[in-house]
Design a protein around this nucleic acid. Sequence first.
DNA 1: GACCGGGTATGAAATGCTTCACCGCGGGGG
DNA 2: CCCCCGCGGTGAAGCATTTCATACCCGGTC
Lengths: 231, 231
Amino acid sequence: MPLATLRRKFPLFAGFGRSEFESLEKCLVRRRYSCGQTLFHMGDEGGSLHLIERGRVKVTIPSTSGEELILAILGGGELLGELSLFDGKPRSATVQALETTETFCLHRKDFLALLRNRFDIVEKLLEVLARRIRETNALLADRYFLDITSRLAKKILDLGDAFGIQEGRQVRIGVNITQKNLASMIGATRESINKQFKAFRDQDLVRACGGTIVILNREGLVRKASIFPKP
Amino acid sequence: MPLATLRRKFPLFAGFGRSEFESLEKCLVRRRYSCGQTLFHMGDEGGSLHLIERGRVKVTIPSTSGEELILAILGGGELLGELSLFDGKPRSATVQALETTETFCLHRKDFLALLRNRFDIVEKLLEVLARRIRETNALLADRYFLDITSRLAKKILDLGDAFGIQEGRQVRIGVNITQKNLASMIGATRESINKQFKAFRDQDLVRACGGTIVILNREGLVRKASIFPKP
DNA sequence: GACCGGGTATGAAATGCTTCACCGCGGGGG
DNA sequence: CCCCCGCGGTGAAGCATTTCATACCCGGTC
């Protein structure tokens, strides 16, 4: 991969020059995962970091009874598996590929060595972690304060922002998300999602179209997401 | 505050020598908050970091209808308000003193300057952030997978670990936690907590004693916390 | 001393969500 | 080619929690 591409794809390394690039390149190992494959399991020993080159993965916490909670869906350019790097503890979640996914894998000691000399990378990393914390806090708050209708509307909007493809006045969500996945993202059963989703469809807010979701009326969804269910 | 005290109270600065100490000391501003006072509100501009010297605070997210979700209770030696420092965004939560609390306040640019030269502090910071993420993820997972009984048992155990004072075979939780607070920690109503708490009392797992909780039977609580409600 | 606000206690009624049961569809593998 | 499994769809019943209503106790204060 040329330097320019690296810098474009991974803002983390935006400040890199040629010499740093060359020493970094030696440490990167390319990894390829097909759809459904798991990168690692919660509880595993974790000594490496992934940079997602292309594809998408889901970050989940499994329950002992086989259900799963989806914490995040990550795509190209994003960082993955950094937690274990910083505290040396086991993997905090399971990660599975949702599509064919390619990553660059970087080992703990190489990465820490990298950090030591580059304060700009440290700054960006701190920012990434801060964002993760904000996101999880928001999820938690939503789960406390909102009912399923609002949570679903919000989640659809989020997905639209993260993976949306503009199509005229509509936005198509560019990942295949099953209703079951939606359910484990917002903490509800598939059946509840199904019913709520139908309600949104009946109100012409969204459309389902071969596995992907299309947002028809963004404003309407925003209203659903924020109207307060307990007045 | 002498250097030795600083190093003992705040592991973050364990590696500090005399000269660094002197330059740090110039930047620290002592702040005092009485019980109930708020340090800052969610949404505020946030340009500073607090090191808690003594006392305890609660970190909360308020809902628009006046309820609150308690994300964490922090005590002496802990860090507070670091998120806004790293991403420049507004305060992600409201923080209120639960007791008389004294902190050292450090401004953004002073802190960043500190970081720039001290990789050991960066490492510890990353560790702190990683731990926060793990904790929030765990809260979220609990909220998804466990019922109120298990969540309450778990929370009581957590509080015991964090603020417990050994008293013979018992552990007294050294903070005044109202049932309402417990409720906003685990995401339930005060009434539900009350009933569940009574159940625990009837089983001689815990005892309430003038505002504080005493754990009588740790093992029993552990069992309650982990037995799976949906078999 | 009377009043009031905040915390605790408790039961009955209401309800949002889950559980369960069932159906149809489509696609991938034997 | 057919079978089965995973996904979407839907209604009825069940239930965990919330909501509501009420009461008591305690400490402060007017």
